[in-house]
Simulated scan of single mutants.
Amino acid sequence: MKITLVAAARPNFMKIAPIIEAINNHNIHEEIIDYRLVHTGQHYDKNMSDSFFDELGIPQPNVNLNCGGGTQAEQTAHIMMAFENELAANPADLVLVVGDVTSTMACSIVAKKMAIKVAHVEAGIRSGDMLMPEEINRIVTDAITDYFFTTSDVANINLRSMGIPDERIFYVGNVMIDTLLKNRSRFRRPAVWEQLKLKEKEYLVMTLHRPSNVDEETKLKYYIDELLESSTPLPLVFPVHPRTAKILNKLGVKHNRLHLIEPLGYLEFNFLVENSKAVITDSGGITEETSIMNIPCMTLRDNTERPETISLGTNELIGADPHSIRPTMEKLFSGNWKQSKSIPLWDGNAAERIKDCILKIYGIDA
């Protein structure tokens, strides 16, 4: 059988890596699964793409479609046209997509129009927020997917509410956690650790990337101001995209405890997270990782597609109002932050389950 694996952006690589490893381990004994790795090129910053292949042991992609840049519509169109040519030249029995980026949706549409089955890893998660491009990508992808690999029972419920029969839903766990657990012992101290004289549990990490947070200049400034005022005396380390850095410079946001640094690779960034006092973010994936590492996490959003990080993990959804930051910081410094509990199937074996499910679907003994 032939599978086309699609990767496009930073979170995709963390999800693809353990699946490739599971397939390779299977092929050592019996080479049955023939896969082709397609990088759509949706993200092209080195720390957002190329470095991940090196750090996570992912083989170089068979092809890079170089579809970065442009508006949402332009990028979707570019990916669809390029991926159609790719599949025409290299037919597959199954296209496996991961996550909820533009490439996930675009490649799924192309595959289905070419009568190729689609499997969606991380299917069924929902935020309920149609202003998020990712939510649209999730809904469209799941509307046409054939096989659904899910991370939680909430996702299973969401899919059943769409009329998806149980025999097409495979509750396998979270491949992001496979990657985290495998690489945790390899986390490495970034250069900024020494440069900023950071100490374990004596600094905060911040990440923001959603347009509603970083493109609204007044809100972004309020966020930073509130964080700095309520987090004394801890340094705030902010790996920031150059475009966001320009906005902060334009706003004159400067402080001796605010450290804007370049985006980091996977191993260095997670070293910072694991040794921090807490993380402030608007990223869904980071809420998963902090929950497993038992690091307090504050999410600057009004909704989440990963409710298990709240009910069982260390995540608190504090909303998009900057005024919610101070009382949340007071809770952190009081020492009353909740501890993480075990999240079902987030155990480092999700990719093995996915591989076994694919073999079963195609009638091949694992």
Results as ranks from 00 to 15, higher is better:
I224H: 12
A82V: 04
L159V: 00
L196C: 06
V175D: 06
Y203E: 09
L332Y: 08
I310K: 08
I136L: 05
R301Q: 10
F269I: 08
E305C: 08
G173T: 09
D146E: 09
E289M: 10
C357P: 03
N12L: 00
L332V: 07
W193S: 11
P233Q: 08
K277W: 13
G41Y: 05
P11L: 02
E226H: 15
C107F: 11
S231M: 15
K2M: 09
E289T: 13
P190G: 13
K277M: 15
T151P: 09
R138K: 05
W346T: 04
N90C: 04
L5N: 06
N66Y: 08
N349V: 00
P11T: 03
P263I: 03
Y203N: 07
S49D: 11
V240N: 02
S230A: 15
V205E: 05
R353M: 12
E288D: 07
I354H: 10
N137I: 00
S230Y: 08
T299G: 10
V237A: 12
F148Q: 01
A350L: 11
N137A: 03
S311I: 06
D50G: 10
K113G: 04
M81G: 13
I224Q: 09
V273A: 08
E134L: 00
E84D: 12
F148M: 00
T104M: 01
L94V: 09
I354R: 10
A89R: 13
A9C: 12
L317N: 11
I139D: 02
V110Q: 02
E229I: 12
E134S: 04
I286Y: 11
D54M: 14
S231Y: 13
T151S: 15
R189W: 09
R210E: 03
Q75Y: 00
A7G: 15
I58L: 02
S152C: 11
N156F: 01
L300I: 14
T232K: 15
I354E: 06
V279I: 15
R160C: 01
I295K: 01
V237E: 08
D321E: 14
Q60E: 13
N85Q: 14
H209V: 01
T104I: 02
A191P: 02
C357T: 14
A22K: 12
T281P: 12
N12Q: 00
Y222I: 04
A245F: 11
V98L: 13
N303P: 01
Y223P: 07
V101G: 03
N156E: 03
F13P: 03
N294K: 07
T150Y: 01
K201P: 06
M105L: 14
V273E: 05
E202R: 12
L227T: 09
A119V: 03
M48H: 04
E226K: 14
Y222M: 15
A278H: 06
I169N: 01
F148N: 05
K250G: 14
C67T: 12
L196V: 06
L317G: 06
V192C: 15
